[in-house]
Nucleic acid binder design. Structure first.
Lengths: 233, 233
DNA sequence: CAAAAGTATTAAACTTCATTCAAAAAAAAT
DNA sequence: ATTTTTTTTGAATGAAGTTTAATACTTTTG
């Protein structure tokens, strides 16, 4: 089928582009590089993708598809507590974003786009083609799907008692998601070789997960604050 | 003094650039726009800034300076518990990044740069000029400063009993920071008008802060998990 | 003070892409 | 076999970042 052929070619171009974007970055990757990598002429890439932005949007779409796959994968395995699921999600999410930094960047970028869209001031700064493309709606949907799955995991945990009952599932899950997003971002500077930072990634990650679990599960309350002594340092 | 004059001019150009980047975005802002906004010729901007990247680096520097100012501001007020400080930091941090999205974007971008640098594969994708510029080192330093201040706040809280004593200050603070970074990112999609999401930003924020506080302070432990019942939905 | 040296400033030239286009080649339909 | 549609190309276009050579303005210094 012609459609099948076309999709194959698109995928071929896209995969090459992802490789290039990942190693050289968006700006440094030239459309000619993309063409060369797919063994086609520069002009032809414009037959399959409207422009460079559109190509990047396709990358973003793929990133979101893979992200959702992670969520679904976790959710698929039943017979576990909500807490176990959330922990599993945390591990897989972090593995995914740390192994696919460029795809994650695309995801974060998209979140930025949504912010621009939300804001009167900056809405017009988005190129109209991006908004018109089915991509924008679709990506919001996938994002929302991920959110729904995560919220369900937390709900499950509240029902089965592995997560403390006074929590609200939506708020809680989105807070967890925040943690995951931030962890990946900070992992760069924290993992920076050179700064004599007491914290190292390998130490931080288990501590991070433990904190998250304690936040969900609850902990023994700490002893009452002592009188506040005027501090030293 | 000549130096003073130059700094003044640089600031003038920079401030205009920030305004433009904020409303139109980096790519859509042309060097000519920057020049026009500063009422100088296009060529002259290249006298004050090596190139567009360098101009953006200056923006990033400003972003980090302001971020550090937030941390210092919070830390300055003594006579409070660590928990109070962290809560104050949370509020101010979020206020800062939500009001200055473009500056925050620059900060997040820089974190990406560090990640690229950390990685053999992609290190060469960074333009050498960026690494040579004092900016790179300086920005890492400021980032580290912020981290140190935050860690101190948590340490303080552990000492004064407002934060549970079994926590490790470094791990804990960087985990909080993760939450803050992620909150801002997710605030776009979560605040998106249209999706009938149960969660709204105005609801999420207080819940988010409460969760963070409970993570730090500790909570009553939830009841033991019930037997895991094969789940329904 | 006036020449020299250095600093700002400009407009035009140059360069590097993203993007478009007209034409050719290939495939499909009639 | 001929027309029509789809795919492909390489060259042309144009936008924007960057460089440069020439000019004006300041400061230094003999």
């Amino acid at each position: 089928m012609a459609t099948k052929d076309r999709e194959k070619k698109e995928k071929q171009i896209l995969d090459g582009a992802i490789k290039l974007f990942s190693t050289k970055g968006y700006t440094a990757t030239k459309m000619e590089d993309v063409a060369k990598h797919a063994k086609i002429s520069k002009g032809l890439t414009y037959f399959y993708f409207k422009n460079k932005e559109d190509l990047y949007m396709a990358v973003t779409k793929k990133a979101f598809d893979e992200l959702r796959a992670v969520f679904r994968e976790v959710f698929k395995f039943k017979g576990r507590t909500g807490m176990e699921m959330v922990t599993d999600l945390t591990n897989r999410y972090l593995e995914f974003v740390l192994e696919n930094r460029m795809l994650n960047e695309a995801i974060l970028n998209f979140m930025n786009l949504v912010q621009l869209y939300n804001n009167e001031e900056s809405r017009n700064s988005i190129h109209p083609l991006i908004l018109e493309s089915e991509h924008f709606k679709k990506l919001l949907e996938i994002h929302h799907d991920c959110g729904k799955l995560g919220v369900q995991m937390v709900s499950l945990g509240i029902k089965d008692g592995s997560i403390r009952p006074e929590l609200q599932a939506e708020i809680t899950f989105y807070t967890i998601w925040s943690m995951l997003i931030g962890f990946e971002r900070l992992s760069g500077p924290v993992g920076f070789e050179g700064k004599e930072l007491k914290l190292h990634l390998e130490n931080w990650k288990p501590g991070f997960i433990k904190l998250m679990q304690e936040m969900l599960r609850g902990t023994i309350q700490a002893s009452k604050p002592k009188a506040i002594q005027a501090s030293l340092f």
